[in-house]
Design a protein around this nucleic acid. Structure first.
Length: 501
RNA sequence: GCUCCCGUAGUCUAGUCCGGCCAAGGAUUCGGCGCCUUCGACGCCGUAACCCGGGUUCAAAUCCCGGCGGGAGCACCA
């Protein structure tokens, strides 16, 4: 007896597991999400969300949302409306944070740290124009300020805080090594001066930390045990570690993953931002943004996004995945419980000569799941049929799915034709092209929002009248759709958003 | 140009740290068949990969060297 020894190979039929977190202690893990608040979360942020959340679950730890809302730049401004949008996105994504922090609330905390770094003799106040600073960095040239004494630096720092310098006139720089092989790492800026108005704290502060420095501080102050982030931020690791070493601090370890892009969604957040603001897009939930919100609108479940994202593990390769992979994940989740309905896009009215009276028939809600029940459908000509199919099968015999066969006239359908007469050929279930149909008698207009933002109009079966906003359905031979939240039952047309094939 | 990272089938991934059970597993896609009523699901079958060249070794996807290819960073942005 006993099971055969199949193979010692790891059972990879199950979903790939993320590797264990180094040094993680159950119940003690503290992680963070740090999106820049300039746009809704989108598919590119999903990896950050679910990898962090997965570890939080596994180790029963904490996950903080930390808004990286330092002052930014002219080009990269914080959008105050986005704070709520992001929090809402996290709820939609099924990744609620345990606590929320704003960097802009923490600015004074960075000042003493700056002093600590200065007192180690590892920083100086540089008054070079940005241009020159960059040039010197590239060539590895030291500017005169680099050799200033500790006292001079402290004095300069105090002057920065006191407002003696205008924006761009002075920065606090870390003294790394001008000969560092990585030019990007030479004497990076820690703190700078900005007069821009911050949406949350206004002009309360003039001296702002750079991202890396703020994290060197907050990853310690917030008690993070592990920092998980995209590998585009690896230089931040070095910076943080450099500062910790300088101050004799043991900081959390870093883990990374590569860039994840959806082939269909190469859009930049900034572009979406523009289109959302200008009203070209229908808000952040416009399918063209590929935001988390827009995916929810399309009936793509958070669980599908989670599985999709985690399937890539912590791989460091930069990848580009077709959306079809995400759709497959979602289909697996929703197909077994999703009711089928008829929807005829770009419909043409077709009379059927010699058709028997059928009245009202019953059809199953799902072809393989009788437990999902049945619905009543009126089966009486004339029928709405999809124009594209009528054109493709002109002169041929076709079958109205689940109903009857008919022969289409040979004539070509004029572009604006609205009526056609076909001939009944029988009810026998023959192997014929099958198309969806809706009897005019009980049809209801439907407007389907497509992924490119366009709207397709058509006729849906009468049973849609008893559907509710938020329902996910399959329009047979069209795809999975979700009825729009803004649709009010009892009104026409029914509003639906296309999900995926 | 400099720095770092990556390179397994069409796509993604497991395996690479600790060489042999990997003539390479899974998912998805694609093709065929079935389920006689979907361009969906399900079932079966099939196609298909270790970037290249050297080296070490009885043995290399796995270790070493050298190429090539791809990505990211080189902001007083995040």
């Amino acid at each position: 007896m006993g099971g055969p020894i199949e193979s010692t190979r790891p059972a990879t039929s199950d979903r790939a597991e993320l590797p264990p977190l180094p040094g993680a202690v159950d119940g003690k893990v503290v992680l963070r999400l740090a999106p820049f608040p300039n746009g809704a979360l989108h598919i590119g942020n999903a990896r950050m969300l679910y990898v962090n959340d997965e570890y939080r679950r596994r180790y029963r730890g904490k996950l903080y949302l930390v808004f990286d809302d330092t002052i930014g730049s002219e080009e990269k401004r914080v959008d105050p409306a986005i704070f709520d949008v992001i929090q809402n996105d996290l709820v939609l994504a099924g990744v609620p944070p345990d606590d929320v922090f704003y960097k802009s609330d923490r600015i004074p905390r960075f000042y003493p740290w700056a002093v600590r770094v200065i007192e180690r003799g590892a920083a100086y106040v540089c008054r070079c124009p940005a241009e020159l600073l960059r040039k010197n960095r590239e060539s590895g040239t030291a500017c005169p300020e680099r050799s200033q004494s500790l006292e001079e630096t402290l004095e300069g720092w105090e002057k920065m805080l006191a407002g003696a310098f205008g924006p761009g006139e002075a920065v606090l720089r870390l003294r790394t090594d001008l000969a560092d092989p990585d030019p990007a790492f030479r004497d990076r800026v820690l703190m700078r001066i900005s007069d821009l108005e911050h949406p949350r704290v206004g002009r309360k502060y003039r001296v702002w930390p750079m991202l890396e420095f703020s994290w060197a501080v907050d990853d310690v102050e917030l008690g993070l045990t592990h920092v998980l982030r995209g590998k585009d931020l690896v230089i931040e690791d070095r910076m943080e570690e450099f500062i910790w070493k300088l101050l004799g601090i043991q900081g959390p370890p870093f883990l990374h993953w590569g860039l994840l892009r959806l082939r269909e969604a190469k859009i930049a957040k900034s572009k979406s931002f523009k289109e959302v603001k200008s009203g070209v897009y229908d808000g952040w939930s416009d399918p063209r943004t590929w935001s988390i919100d827009s995916l929810a609108r399309r009936g793509i479940r958070a669980e599908a996004l989670r599985r999709f994202t985690l399937s890539f593990g912590l791989s460091l390769s930069d990848i580009e995945v077709p959306a079809e992979t995400l759709y497959a994940e979602n289909r697996q989740l929703i197909d077994p419980t999703t009711a089928r309905r008829a929807f005829v896009p770009d419909p043409v009215l077709v009379e059927v000569e010699g058709a028997p009276e059928l009245g009202v028939i019953e059809l199953p809600n799902h072809p393989d799941r009788p437990e999902l029940g049945r619905r009543e459908v009126v089966a009486a000509p004339p029928y709405w049929l999809p124009r594209a199919e009528l054109e493709r099968h002109a002169g041929e015999e076709i079958r109205l799915k689940d109903l009857l066969n008919l022969k289409l006239p040979l004539e070509r359908i004029a572009g604006d034709a609205t009526r056609l007469v076909a001939r009944f050929t029988g009810r026998e279930n023959k192997k014929l092209p099958r198309i969806q149909w809706v009897a005019r008698e009980s049809s209801i207009p439907v407007e389907l929002l497509e992924l490119d933002g366009s709207r397709r109009t058509g006729q849906g079966e009468g049973s849609l009248r008893s559907s509710a906003p938020g329902d996910v359905l399959q329009f047979e031979r069209v795809g999975f759709v979700r009825l729009e939240d803004k649709w009010k039952p009892g009104t026409e047309p029914v509003l639906a958003c296309f999900g995926h094939p």
